[in-house]
Each structure stands twice: as structure tokens, then as C-alpha cells.
């Protein structure tokens, strides 16, 4: 199976910090698989994720070393996204590598416009095209039945779980190659969490997914591969079953069994 993304020896230092927050991290994100990142708070898993679409670069002064390779659209060879300098290319990167955040972040506009927003940014103007994508994205995000009658309502009127599904619909409307989830269910109730998890396992058929989660059961339920991080280092990366059944590192085992973290 091909790797969609490959993080190689990534060292990342926040602006003004003397110590790096990520130390020589390597991580593959396989195509059409779910890769989970687990670890205690402050271990750097979100920092790593935010490097993978270079959202860090919104704030100046952070330093990267190493490489994050993204499979080219023609599937021949990789491009190191850390080499990107131009704003326009960064924007293109973020459309190829979508991101879902800890809390639902509906834009202050209608449900329809929320989904259509990314397309409008990339220059799609025809109403019919937009309509088609909005419907398809909402169906993929299992939100169509609930939202179809109120597409012209403010998206902030949806419930928390619906808002998060809206954000996922918004991300997949752009047909990204990779979707990054940064603790997507940490602000949701158990039922909404379950809905998101089910959706992720369906989305896997079309997208490559990397998810950061605090919830180990969640990682065990939905991921194919799991990386355990601790204090800015990747302690262990393997198939999820292996990580949870017989991890090779003592630290991983301690964390999995709840002895710390």
C-alpha cells in the first residue's frame, strides 16, 4: 500500500522556544487508512498534525527541519511540503490536506455557503455545480437528511454534533487527498461522537485520514495504524492491534494500560 504522506525526521521548534517540540518524528500516513496519534497532553501530537498542512505558518517564526512528503496527484513521486514558500502554493496545499478542529467551527453564514465556501475560494461560481457538491458532501457526512430543508439557515443554528459533521462535509467538498482530524470529538456528546466515528470509517474508502485523539478507545475502534507520542518523540508506531495488544515499548504499554497520561 502506498503512503499518502510521509513525515521524515521532522523536528519542529515553536517561535521563541529554545527546545524543539517535535524531535525527529517519522510517520507514514497510508492511503485509504486511518492513522491515529495518541499520547498524553503536551506530547506534540497536535503540533505534528498542524505541521502536516502547515497551518503553523499562519504565525511567524516557527522552524521546521526534516521533511513532510506528500504524494503527487499523479501518484509518481513525492513533494516535500516544507519546501513550499509561496502563499498560493500553501493555499493549494491546504485544499489538498483538509483539517477538522477540536471544536465545531461553522462559518458565520448559511449551511449551503459553509459547504460551498472552499469551492468558491477555488473559483467555482456556477450555482448548479455548487449545488451538486453541497448535496454530495452533505450526504457523505450523513447530514443531508437533517439539513436539506434548511440549507439557507445560519449554520450556527445546528447542534454541536451536526456542526462538526458540517465541518467534515465542508472539508470533503474540496475532495482533499488527506484529512487531518484534531481531536474532532472532544467537544461532543457520546452519540455525536459515535456518528463522527462511523463517518470516519466510511470516509476511509475515499480519503487518507490522520486523527489525533485523547481517547484511546476511539483510536482502537477506528484506526488501522497508531502512533504513540511522548514528550515530542514518536515512541512507537505500528498496526493498531499490535499497539493495543502487544506493544514493544514499555512506555506505550504503561500509557495504554492507564498507568500514566
Amino acid at each position: 500500500m502506498k503512503n499518502m504522506m510521509e513525515v521524515k525526521d521532522l523536528t519542529f521548534t515553536y517561535s521563541g522556544a529554545s527546545e524543539p517540540s517535535l524531535k525527529s518524528i517519522s510517520l507514514p500516513v497510508e492511503k485509504n487508512k486511518v492513522t491515529a496519534l495518541i499520547g498524553p497532553s503536551g506530547c506534540g501530537k497536535s503540533t505534528l498534525l498542524r505541521g502536516m498542512n502547515r497551518i503553523h505558518d499562519l504565525y511567524p517564526g516557527h522552524r521546521y527541519e526534516g521533511a513532510i512528503n506528500l504524494l503527487n496527484p499523479d501518484e509518481k513521486g513525492y513533494t516535500n511540503i516544507l519546501d513550499i514558500k509561496k502563499e498560493a502554493e500553501l493555499i493549494r496545499l491546504r485544499q489538498r490536506v483538509g483539517m477538522i478542529f477540536q471544536k465545531p467551527t461553522p462559518f458565520p453564514m448559511t449551511i449551503f455557503e459553509n459547504i460551498a465556501y472552499g469551492l468558491r475560494l477555488s473559483g467555482v461560481k456556477k450555482r448548479a455545480d455548487l449545488q451538486e457538491v453541497v448535496e454530495r458532501s452533505l450526504r457523505d457526512a450523513a447530514l443531508w437528511e437533517e439539513a436539506k430543508d434548511r440549507l439557507d439557515h445560519d449554520a450556527r443554528g445546528l447542534s454541536g454534533g451536526q456542526q462538526q459533521r458540517l465541518c467534515i462535509a465542508r472539508a470533503i467538498a474540496l475532495k482533499p487527498e488527506v484529512i487531518l482530524f484534531d481531536e474532532p470529538t472532544s467537544a461532543l456528546d457520546p452519540i455525536s461522537t459515535l456518528a463522527i466515528e462511523e463517518m470516519i470509517s466510511v470516509l476511509r474508502e475515499q480519503y487518507s485520514i490522520c486523527i489525533v485523539t485523547h481517547n484511546m478507545q476511539q483510536a482502537a475502534r477506528i484506526s488501522d495504524y497508531t502512533g504513540f507520542m511522548y514528550l515530542g518523540e514518536m515512541i512507537e508506531y505500528d498496526q493498531t492491534d499490535t499497539i493495543f495488544m502487544k506493544p514493544s515499548q514499555k512506555q506505550t504499554e504503561d500509557y495504554i494500560s492507564g498507568r500514566f497520561g
Partner: peptide, 26 residues
């Protein structure tokens, strides 16, 4: 919220677009 602005950037918005479409309406 920073997260709201970041999610607009994550959709490929430029600074101007984020200010116009997200910051001002919010």
C-alpha cells in the same frame, strides 16, 4: 476564535478572504 479563522485558512482562504468572510460577519 483563532480556531474559526484557522479553519477558514485550512479551506484555502487568504487573509483578506478570512477577514471579509469570517472575521467581519462573526
Amino acid at each position: 476564535p483563532d480556531m474559526l479563522k484557522e479553519s477558514a485558512y485550512a479551506m484555502g482562504a487568504t487573509k483578506l478572504e478570512v477577514i471579509k468572510d469570517v472575521v467581519f460577519p462573526y
